[in-house]
Nucleic acid binder design. Sequence first.
DNA 1: TTTAATCATTACTAACTTAATCATGTAAGT
DNA 2: ACTTACATGATTAAGTTAGTAATGATTAAA
Lengths: 141, 141
Amino acid sequence: MKVSAKMDYAVRALLELALHWPDTNPRHIRDISRKAAVPQKFLIHILIVLKSLGYVHSIRGKTGGYTLALEPRQIRLVDVVKQWGGLGSFDEQKRKMKKDDAISLLWQQIDKDIIQTLKGVSLEDLCNRQRQQGKILSYDI
Amino acid sequence: MKVSAKMDYAVRALLELALHWPDTNPRHIRDISRKAAVPQKFLIHILIVLKSLGYVHSIRGKTGGYTLALEPRQIRLVDVVKQWGGLGSFDEQKRKMKKDDAISLLWQQIDKDIIQTLKGVSLEDLCNRQRQQGKILSYDI
DNA sequence: TTTAATCATTACTAACTTAATCATGTAAGT
DNA sequence: ACTTACATGATTAAGTTAGTAATGATTAAA
């Protein structure tokens, strides 16, 4: 019932790339690391996973870096989270159980709720919210 | 984003006590352990916490055991889970962050969804579901 | 009043997970 | 070549999890 730092970082990295979309220039890890507040050495591994999942492309060499592999509106949070494997509020694999008792069903219902919420959110949505949030905050000055 | 075994066990222990309500005879750990499929040595610690949270009473000595401290309909899952401290899909304490950015707000939304679901469920509800489930299963014979 | 059954408390631990870092390798532009 | 970047695997310190062990305290009953 906890979002791991890794998953949080993954989404932040994706959002950071999405906020620059449709700029096609590759962003390098150093920049993403700074803007998304993720340790650079850690971010490398996260980006490799995101690449293997098909969410980002990488370009090696001197002018290398990362780009989004899809349009922000095509990337749904539910898919990222599901594929990341981090979901499942109840780890049924590890506990040998009936899984059809009232309590297991309750945990499963919670899973469904989470998925339902995430289904409605794309990277594009997050971009809009972030920009909107920025506006609200600027009024505070 | 995972329900710990401890929390799962805690709810199972409470449900086991609730299923016997309003029988006021104390049940001893051994029985609860067997029926709820929780290691006895582990269950002791869980029951102590549940006692400190006010959900169960304990009676020591030869005819001792545990009883529910409240009626099943008075015990809402949302309270148990919240007081257990296990909730919070995103651990904001440990990561120094703004907490008002789009991503943090998304994790917070997930928390709210979980709480919303749990608010609607009491131990009495779980009892009814469990009994109903038993009926359904017995038709399979 | 001993004894046995039960709850209470503290300490310990093996296994696992998390959140990284380090070292080294590979590719590509200048 | 040289530099700059991504790639990969190994390692690791700290924390959490899911228990177990040992011992103490309380009470009913023989």
